[in-house]
Amino acid sequence: MTGIVALYIFLLAAFTGYEVIARVPVILHTPLMSGSNFVHGIVLVGAMVALGEAVTPLEKTIGFIGVLLAAGNAVGGYVVTERMLEMFKSSGTKPSGGSRGAH
């Protein structure tokens, strides 16, 4: 990949990120932050390549720590985001009938 192509990707991705969440309501700030935290867990693929190409014991050790941390970022980010979003329900879909439940 040439530098200028990478720069184009960088520019377009920056605008995309801004646009995608520009109108997010406050109620979703915490889950969305957690969700974007999960997305940068993609660092895992880079850490895998770094460890895969590591040669000396030092490189292997640091690479191992990198993969370990990255996997934690990806999996942890996914689990907590999923747990939070799973709970968001509207009154239309409420499981325990509140208004209809009276005798």
Binding site: M1, A6, I9, F10, A13, A14, F15, T16, G17, Y18, V20, I21, A22, V24, H29, L32, M33, S36, N37, V39, H40, I42, V43, V45, G46
Partner: peptide, 17 residues
């Protein structure tokens, strides 16, 4: 490319957030 795109999207979305 996956890291560049995902990282940058989070970088700018996170700054806005």
């Amino acid at each position: 490319a996956a890291m560049i795109i995902a990282g940058t999207v989070v970088g700018s979305a996170g700054t806005l957030l």
